[in-house]
Amino acid sequence: MRILTITFLFLFLVSCSNSDSTLTTNATPDEVRETDPITGIQSFSVIGDYNGNLWKSEWTTHVYDALEDQNSALLDNEVSSYDLSLINCGNYNSFSRENKMKFWALFMASFSHYESSYNPNERYWESSLGKYSEGLFQLSTSDSNYYTFCNVDSSNILNPKENIQCAVAILDVQIDGSTRRESGRLFPNSYFYWSVLTRSSSKSKVINYFKNRVKQKLPACS
């Protein structure tokens, strides 16, 4: 009888342990939250539309860190109210610094989805340019010659952290504008760097992608 009791208790404890393990591992990647040790801001992952492809929470952290390391003007410059209305975040310009960082992470995740399908090893030969577009944001090694904080070369361009660091720098220049380009444009009227942000067919996909996720990832938007 004593042996049976001990056996029953052992089986019960094993059953409880397995149950707890199931509860832990059943959480979807989209529910994973981590806190960036540098900024103290909560990171997030994003599930894509292609068989559950994933923007990882650590990539969100890389966006936060790049914004901080570069003292990025993305956190200071105003964004076009028209473009913000397209993605249901018309109040962005009054956001706190923390929410602005979350905004840029979600926006970058939204168009990276259509650049690389969240495949950091994606490479595409641009025959008209005679070079490859590579990584999460389909960058070129020559970008290091034109953009501050772009330090990509053939050895590291597929590294998500380096790729994101350079992409933040390029996006900063896009939003900053110039004498020939309107400032604050998420979706420029003329081509700047990423065609998915200017071509009407792909731009609408980026807009819908952001809108479909903004309530969950950035409830501050309205």
Rank of each mutant, 00 (worst) to 15 (best):
E68Y: 04
S116G: 03
S190L: 07
F103G: 08
G135H: 06
Q42T: 15
D153E: 02
F187L: 14
Y114W: 04
Y82V: 13
N77K: 14
D65Q: 14
D69I: 07
Q216S: 01
I175N: 11
N212T: 03
K161D: 09
A105V: 06
T61S: 15
P188K: 02
S21Q: 14
Y82M: 12
N212E: 03
S195D: 14
E134C: 06
R33D: 02
V168I: 12
S72I: 08
Y114P: 07
G48N: 01
L136D: 02
V206L: 06
Y147K: 01
L129A: 13
Y92M: 05
S110H: 00
T5V: 10
C166F: 03
S222H: 03
G90N: 03
M1L: 13
F187R: 02
T39F: 10
S222T: 05
Q165N: 12
K100L: 13
S72H: 12
S140T: 13
N88D: 15
D176K: 15
I47S: 11
T39C: 13
T198M: 13
D176P: 09
Y82H: 14
A27Y: 12
L197Q: 07
Y50A: 07
L171A: 11
D36Y: 04
Q42P: 15
N91D: 02
N88C: 06
N99F: 10
E98L: 10
T60E: 04
N163A: 03
N163S: 04
F111I: 00
L218C: 13
A169Y: 11
Y118K: 08
L9E: 07
A73M: 14
A73E: 15
K203C: 11
V14G: 11
V214I: 09
S201K: 10
S201L: 05
F44E: 08
D49S: 14
F210N: 05
Y146H: 08
I164F: 08
P219F: 05
C221Q: 11
N53Y: 04
V79L: 12
